[in-house]
Amino acid sequence: MNKHYILASLCVLSLTLTACGSDDDHNDTMVVTPTPEPVPTPTPEPEPVFEPFIYAVKVTNITRGQPLSPLAAMIFNGEYQMPQIGEPASVALEVLAESGDNSQWLQAAMVDEHVYMSTSAEGGPLLPGASTTVMLEVDPGAEVPADMYLGLVSMLANTNDGITMLDATDLAQLQVDESASWTTLSYDTGTELNSESADTIIGPAAAGGLQEGFNAVRDDIVDELRLHSGVISYDDGLMGSALSEAQRFDNPVMRVDITRMQ
């Protein structure tokens, strides 16, 4: 069987060669007629088109009792900055951190010239222990970006204004089919006092309260992004807290597995 196959291949090869030879012969005998001088016209260089970069970003909620609001994911260049510790939060981040609504955040990303793409994870909150995968695609068109970074942000729903964030993470070193993993820290945006009350927390632990989301008033002890100090909870002595010991958390709070698909 194998032998037959090889023989067949050889036949095809020799046939091709023969065909080529006869083609050359034909060209040699072709009559060339003089043509008029061509008028020089600017011919545009054909634009090279590159394959899209596609990344599968799997996130896992590794807390005990903090649902994560729908993930906002984005890929950007080195000019873009994710929120920085020590700086006040933008209103778009404040909305995300207090209500879990990432639409303003993504709107801002969409109009930012340094952001290649941005999207939200589908479905509702990511419950403790659960995972979801977001596909991210950057279509480079005619020019491959010099640098690409991944950023992720999501609210810890049973907090006043806590988020988790993957700061600019370099995607350049990731080859096709390669994976990399990170874990993320918890941050306090500093835009709302951490009362932990049922009236001010949107998450399920505050069921029965007003569960207010975004409020433009900034009444935290400092109006700056910092690492989160954790929640205290009613069980640990904070009167008025809607949280039990089960909503406490420690770092890290989310696991991120990135695979470059293409």
């Binding site: 918890s186 989160h228 100090s229 954790g230 205290i232 904070l238 009167m239 770092n251």
Partner: peptide, 20 residues
């Protein structure tokens, strides 16, 4: 959370931290 009594002089709502 008691600024004039309690077991600790540290304010639980202000001075806790998590690593790093």
């Amino acid at each position: 959370t008691d600024s004039v009594a309690g077991a600790s002089d540290i304010d639980a709502t202000r001075h806790r931290w998590l690593n790093p």
